[in-house]
């Protein structure tokens, strides 16, 4: 089978390009430390989400120095927390999100950032991000989830540490009072 010399050259360059792409992505994963959403979040029964120890009352929990877990439930057409009240996190913290869906498939996107995942009933998307300076982020549902999909949005407020601490302690006290 005869292949023109120029086409052989192109074939070789194309292979180099492909290997280069795979190399860049591998660097992103191994060198820059970007982790993929995967199966580490485990599964949850969407029918009994209300009784779940974490997703039954979703929100933020401190799990160490500067380190937090956030549980988020996506349902038609709200994020809990996020929509009716903002999701609050302290500045300079490491936050692990656990996102699931109660009814249909949703998306969870922090606008203008790389924090982006699918929310699938029965599955928990677990991922960790680092928040920097105080400020605000928008969040939205980026997977069509029904006739009100376009109103499904929310807000993340990154607060100063002291401000956050007093809000958090107040939440904890309220929670204990209710129990």
């Amino acid at each position: 089978m005869e292949i023109h010399a120029y086409e052989k050259l192109w074939l070789a360059l194309a292979l180099v390009l492909i290997v280069g792409f795979i190399g860049t992505i591998t660097y992103g994963a191994a060198g820059a430390g970007i982790d993929m959403i995967d199966d580490k979040g485990g599964t949850v029964d969407p029918a009994t989400l209300d009784q779940h120890p974490k997703f039954g009352d979703p929100g933020i929990e401190r799990n160490g120095e500067n380190s937090y877990d956030v549980y988020v439930v996506a349902r038609q057409f709200v994020f809990e927390p996020g929509t009716t009240e903002p999701l609050r996190v302290p500045a300079g913290s490491t936050v692990t999100f656990h996102v699931t869906a109660a009814d249909v498939i949703h998306g969870f996107e922090v606008v203008g950032t790389n924090a982006n995942t699918m929310a699938i009933p029965g599955q928990v998307a677990e991922f960790t991000v680092e928040f920097g300076e105080p400020g605000e982020y928008g969040m939205l549902c980026n997977e069509y989830c029904g006739s009100g999909h376009h109103v499904m949005e929310g807000k993340i407020v990154v607060m100063e540490q002291e401000e956050f601490d007093s809000w958090y302690d107040q939440q904890q006290a309220q929670g204990e009072a209710e129990n």
């Binding site: 820059a32 970007i34 922090v110 950032t113 924090a115």
Partner: peptide
């Protein structure tokens, strides 16, 4: 063009953004 755009998209647009999934 492909190589130039890839480098720009990956290292500037993507890795340059705040809030990246690290774990």
């Amino acid at each position: 063009i492909l190589i130039g755009m890839w480098v720009f998209m990956y290292f500037v647009e993507f890795l340059g953004r705040g809030l990246t999934v690290v774990g």
